[in-house]
Design a protein around this nucleic acid. Structure first.
Length: 755
DNA sequence: GCCCTCTTGTTCGAT
DNA sequence: ACAAGAGGGC
């Protein structure tokens, strides 16, 4: 079953030899072109599937591509994977060449943080406020392919403590090496190293991959591009698709130049441009085009659509985050009455933390949902613990895993003892596992401590033997049982602890399922997939509303899209403002908008939002005005004077007053723009979902009442607001008065004024 | 030396 | 709100 292709798409599909670059605007059928080309290669050109490689960026994209290919081809040997898992597979087969053993550990964020902690402890930098700074630097360096020395040369001029940063980098890498472990960035860097320094390995893969495809090429960084160049070195058949307007991974080292200057690496490249959009209505595209035009650095293009009869994009201005959630839920409920189903909806957020409110509300409304991005099931503490046992057994050098579990569940082995073992291990240049194994030779530990460690050692020894004798799923169950997780969590008799046990139980089921699909999956392979698996456990209960971060929504499409929390400081993120990254933020918004097929809602809170358990004033994102087509009143080339920083910013009374008023009037306008003649005036129909009827009275009154604000009470005098709760007319504030203590007021009635 | 509880700062995005 | 650190009890 082949779909129709337009003339340009068809040409790109049939242009199979040499380098081909396809500029593919959002929704222009990029994936379709990719899959058709692969099918064309196999069915019409007789290329064996195992000679074809397709690289994507996310697991989701990989799965989708695999699905499409097997739908159309049935069983096939096409190698589809993300850059990272491609590299892992190549590395596992050739780890010895780089001085690692196969079965090396892949350190996720949690593990690398622990390593960093150790480095900082060693270097007496515990008091350093900005601990993430070092990890950030290391990642940046690795994404550019720079070893410590080279990175030092790059930053010595602009970083005061460049020397220190590089020392931390060196030590961090040293520890990873000692652990026989790589972090995510290493996977790419070491793979390139392997390929460029081992002629035979390189030529094996060069021969194998006669046709190479790269999706989302605008998101590749230097190293990824170099890997592509290396792999294609023999046949030069490289087919890349991308869209510079959708480049949203600059922070991960992605280099738009890779796509814009592709012809420098492949001078004979043939280029195609796909500008017809098959996804969205013209109304949605108009708004997206209006927005993205504000970016200076981009190759000009204009998406167009045949779907001219859409409805207008709606802008929702909400008073607070609960009101925003209600607005979204209300519209979902109403649209479902018009025939939309749960699977048609997506709520797109800029940050993971914003998903919680929607989860809670969807739960209470019994609206099934799934989450993309956000916290992985496998990142839960209890799962990481189980996995750490597995890691230690596969890779005895993994001291990070060992320290994680040596005293969990509690065995009476304290920090001091662990630190002693760590130091001793370092002094003799052996992994901690080895020291634990020979604990009676270690000086300076009490017999009691040695006994406890010996017991732990025996456990690990027993599990190591069991691993060799059992099938993977039995082994994991055995491990969980032997270690005593169930007993530990059940004995606590707390709901929270019980939930942790249930998660482990679910993990066991996951192992069972995975091994069912692949009978002789071994522990090493399993750990490898786990490390890169982003899939959140979901028991596909049919139709679900999608909640996703804007980044993870890339490549997806939905009939109805809600872009929420479009506020200055969130989108664009305050972090991006300093780094001059507003253009990338605008592209994030652009990606989000172009996910929508039929209906697009852009919503923001103009008022107060809870962040980090404190109240912060919010104002609509400049992007809202840009998409609407107005000249934004506050988007200046200078860095914006506000931003969410430590302590938030003061939303001075009336400082943005005139604009705020205008937005509010506008909201009245749009509340009439709800699709299809008065089908929904939400609020009447559903108990929990009321669309905010703007009442300027209390809006004016709640404005500025944020925690920390100084107020004067007619009777009690001056105090400080500590808690603001409720919404609109029901808002209550709790105020601490210097002498009279803490009082709670209904804001509407209380004689309070801001000072 | 180890365990338990209370306080504290912390969160952009993904593999 | 959640995990790491501090501090007191055993």
């Amino acid at each position: 079953m082949k779909y129709m292709l337009n003339a340009v798409q068809q040409k790109a599909v049939e242009d199979t030899e040499g380098a081909v670059l396809v500029f593919a605007g959002a929704g222009s059928g990029k994936t379709r072109v990719l899959t058709h080309r692969i099918i064309h290669l196999i069915e019409d050109k007789g290329v064996p599937g195992y000679n074809i490689l397709a690289i994507t960026f996310t697991n989701k994209a990989t799965n989708e591509m695999k699905q499409r290919l097997s739908d159309m081809l049935g069983e096939n040997a096409v190698w589809v994977s993300t850059f990272h898992s491609l590299c892992v597979k190549i590395l596992f087969r050739n780890a010895e060449r780089l001085g690692y053993t196969s079965g090396f550990s892949i350190f996720d964020e949690t593990a690398t943080k622990r390593v960093m902690q150790r480095v900082l402890r060693e270097k007496h930098l515990e008091d350093e406020k900005d601990k993430d700074k070092y990890r950030y630097h290391i990642s940046t360096a690795k994404n550019m392919g720079l070893l410590p020395d080279a990175y030092f040369n790059l930053i010595r001029a602009k970083e005061r403590d460049a020397m220190l940063i590089v020392e931390v980098y060196e030590r961090y890498d040293e520890i990873l090496k000692e652990n026989n472990a790589m972090d995510f960035d290493d996977l790419l860097m070491k793979c390139r190293e392997l390929l460029s320094e081992n002629e035979d390995v390189l030529s094996y893969y060069q021969n194998k991959f006669r046709y190479i495809h790269v999706d989302e090429f605008q998101d590749t960084n230097e190293i990824q591009f170099e890997i592509v160049k290396l792999l294609s070195g023999k046949w030069h058949n490289v087919f890349v698709v991308g869209d510079d307007d959708q480049s949203i991974y600059g922070w991960r080292g992605a280099n738009v130049k890779n796509i814009l200057e592709f012809d420098k690496a492949f001078p004979e490249v043939k280029t195609y441009k796909l500008e017809q959009n098959y996804r969205s209505t013209q109304q949605i595209l108009d708004a997206a085009n209006r927005l993205i035009k504000h970016n200076k650095s981009r190759s000009d293009k204009q998406l167009f659509s045949d779907k001219k009869d859409g409805v207008r994009v709606e802008y929702l201005f909400c008073t607070n985050e609960y009101n925003e959630v209600d607005n979204v839920v209300g519209r979902i409920v109403a649209l479902k009455k018009q025939g939309y189903t749960n699977g048609d909806f997506a709520v797109l957020v800029r940050t993971n933390s914003l998903t919680r409110l929607f989860e809670r509300s969807f739960n209470s409304m019994h609206l099934p949902y799934r989450i993309f991005g956000g916290f992985r099931f496998f990142d839960r503490k209890e799962i990481l613990d189980v996995v750490a046992y597995m890691r230690l057994i596969v890779n005895p050098s993994d001291s990070e895993a060992l320290t994680r579990i040596i005293n969990f569940p509690k065995r009476g082995i304290g920090d001091t003892t662990v630190a002693h073992i760590e130091q001793y291990a370092a002094s003799i240049g052996e992994p901690m596992r080895k020291v634990v194994d020979e604990i009676y030779d270690v000086p300076g530990l009490s017999p009691a401590a040695k006994g406890k460690i010996a017991a732990f050692n025996e456990l690990i020894g027993e599990l190591t033997i069991a691993k060799g004798q059992m099938k993977l799923k039995d082994f994991v169950a055995h491990l969980v049982e032997k270690v005593g997780f169930e007993q530990y969590y059940r004995s606590q008799d707390k709901e929270e602890e019980l939930a942790r046990w249930e998660n482990i139980d679910e993990f066991l089921r996951y192992v069972e399922e995975t091994t069912e699909e692949n009978e002789d999956l071994d522990l090493t392979d399993f750990l490898q997939t786990l490390a890169l698996n982003n899939e959140v456990e979901s028991e596909d209960e049919g139709e679900q509303v999608t909640i996703a971060t804007m980044h993870s929504a890339k490549g997806l499409e939905f009939r109805v899209v809600f872009i929420v929390a479009c506020e200055e400081g969130i989108l664009p993120s305050s972090m991006s403002l300093k780094e001059n990254g507003v253009e990338e933020e605008r592209r994030v918004m652009y990606v989000a908008m172009t996910r929508a097929q039929e209906r697009l809602y852009i919503s923001c809170v103009k008022g107060v939002r809870n962040r980090f358990n404190r109240q912060e004033a919010t104002m609509p994102s400049r992007f809202v005005a840009e998409a609407e087509g107005e000249q934004p009143s506050f988007a200046s080339p200078k860095p914006a004077p506000y931003g969410f920083g430590k302590g938030g910013y003061g939303y001075g009374k009336g400082s943005f007053g005139s604009r705020a008023d205008r937005d509010f009037e506008r909201m009245d306008d749009y509340s009439d723009a709800i699709p299809h003649e008065g089908q929904m005036r939400i609020g009447a129909s559903t108990n929990n979902t009321t669309i905010q009827q703007p009442k300027k009275v209390y809006n004016k009154t709640t404005e500025g009442f944020v925690s920390g604000a100084k107020v004067r009470h007619k009777k009690y005098g001056v105090g400080t607001v500590i808690i603001v709760s409720g919404t609109g007319a029901g808002t209550t504030v709790t105020v601490a008065f210097k002498d009279l203590g803490i009082k709670k007021f209904a804001l509407m009635n209380a004689p309070l004024e801001l000072i």
